[in-house]
């Protein structure tokens, strides 16, 4: 689905949204909380910085912080930076041809549905949604509890 790099980028952005608040987060903190090797992370952050999603500040109080609002960063924006967009129009096996309705390969129709669902997921999911705490289902007290035995 996502490449390892895109997955790491998503995790780093989630951590920036969670830990950042109004301040910045150091690379070391990000590396620990997101579980990404530091050298790999710095390359990913560099690309995110070039894309304008995050801002890096040098110095003793430096670090990284989100520039874009987490609610406006869609997974599509991140995936487009790191993964080739070829799968959007390419053939199932990436055979170097564009699959179209008129000129389709044997896997076209089944694959098309999967691709559409995946694209919708990437378009609709934001970093803010992924950074939100998981709602804990309310504890349901069984009705028999608390009743006095008659």
């Amino acid at each position: 689905m996502l490449s390892a790099t895109a997955e790491h980028a998503v995790r780093a952005l989630i951590q920036l949204a969670v830990l950042g608040g109004n301040g910045s987060v150091t690379g070391k903190q990000l590396s620990c909380t997101a579980g990404i090797p530091p050298n790999y992370l710095s390359k990913i952050l560099c690309l995110l910085g070039h894309a304008g999603m995050i801002h890096a500040t040098r110095g003793s109080h430096g670090g990284y912080q989100l520039v874009w609002d987490a609610a406006h960063i869609r997974l599509t924006d991140v995936v487009n930076l790191f993964d080739h967009a070829r799968w959007r129009k390419g053939c199932f096996l990436d055979c170097g041809r564009d699959c179209k309705e008129a000129d389709q390969c044997a896997a076209h129709s089944g694959w098309q549905e999967c691709r559409d669902v995946f694209e919708r997921f990437l378009d609709r999911t934001t970093i803010a949604a992924l950074a939100a705490p998981i709602p804990v289902p309310p504890l349901v007290t069984p009705q028999w509890k608390g009743r006095r035995a008659s």
Binding site: C91, F92, L93, C95, A106
Partner: peptide
């Protein structure tokens, strides 16, 4: 999917 042309 054997009809998928894998040769460029």
């Amino acid at each position: 999917i054997s009809g998928v042309p894998f040769k460029r």
